[in-house]
Design a protein around this nucleic acid. Structure first.
Lengths: 187, 187
DNA sequence: TACAAAGTAGACAGATCTGTCTACAATGGT
DNA sequence: ACCATTGTAGACAGATCTGTCTACTTTGTA
């Protein structure tokens, strides 16, 4: 029976959730497969049935992360007014949250860029979608695309800054000022 | 008698240079000590005499990287005119260069942030010095510090963007526009 | 009822990692 | 002349990592 009535715990999903938690929190290379297996309470053979290699799991993790993050991002932007200024309070929710450890994609590119080129490809797609969500905050204009790219660059900078600072406030303050400067009516 | 080459500039420095190359190019966790030892043509015992643990080498690598990068950055900014606009051509030299793999500090924070907290501390110092070099491009004003912080955030964003894009041009174009917006005479 | 799919537990192979240790050679200051 | 320092070569221990494999159990469905 494959009817979706009961949310069966499903080994596959437990693995993915454990991997998401560990990979994001401690890094991908720092997390051994055995750790994911122990955390998800699954047998080793079951793991390898679902994910033939660690690299497969890494890519699945990034897919999952993309869906999860984008859903949160778009929802938060809408909740804060759907204007470019909404970027600051929306980002604040994330940067100031307990488990914040930077952008999973940026971290993965730094760790694996050379070793697993698909990571770069997924990151480009992720950031393109982020820029698209930002573009949706802007009124149509010939410069909308470029302005969204600039705001996305500033957001990336703020994410990085909040990752190594103790305090997310300076990063958010910078972001607020950059958003203001970029959206200021042109001469 | 085993090394007929040049008298060699000391084992310690050869180790540091090999580590700099490997850690930056392939990542820290991906680079085993044996690899550094082989590349620097040094005996294992010599290595451990100079750097009691891999972590010590990692911190020495970041110190070295900081000195090297700051020297280049300040020189390049001066060479391009010493104005805020000099940021773009200066960064272009780096982002478009062959071995570019992002900021060593940002990458290290992503890889080791939790495992080796001193990395975060060194990164904060590195970025503070980068902001100081940027501040030196700005005329004295009450907003100089904040503006330098904002430009530094934009620079970090551009570095990241150039790291996962194929092409450094979009990152540099965004940086140019953000610099222009931030330095535009206020109302 | 019978069978295929998906699960559990855990030993094992083979590679690689950090760090220690033995044994010996060159070198330079006192 | 002596000897501490610094070097080389490489075996070794002990941990950990990815991935394979055997043997048994549960479960849904034909």
């Amino acid at each position: 029976m494959t009817s979706p009535d009961i949310p069966a715990p499903g080994a596959r999903e437990r693995i993915l959730l454990a991997a998401h938690d560990l990979f994001y929190r401690e890094g991908i290379r720092a997390t051994g497969i055995d750790r994911v297996i122990a955390e998800s309470g699954v047998a080793k053979l079951s793991f390898y049935r679902h994910y033939p290699s660690k690299n497969d799991l890494v890519l699945a993790f990034l897919d999952h992360r993309h869906a999860r993050w984008m859903a949160w991002f778009e929802e938060a932007l809408a909740r804060h007014g759907g204007t470019p200024q909404a970027l600051v309070p929306a980002l604040k929710e994330w940067l100031a949250s307990a488990g914040f450890r930077g952008c999973a994609f940026i971290n993965s590119v730094g760790e694996l860029g050379e070793a697993l080129p698909q990571v770069n490809e997924l990151t480009r797609r992720h950031k393109a979608d982020m820029a698209k969500a930002i573009a949706a905050l802007l009124p149509p204009s010939p410069r909308r695309r470029l302005l969204a790219a600039d705001l996305a660059t500033a957001v990336d900078g703020a994410i990085i800054r909040a990752q190594y600072d103790d305090d997310p406030k300076p990063a958010l303050a910078s972001l607020r000022r950059i958003v203001a400067a970029l959206t200021r009516p042109a001469a």
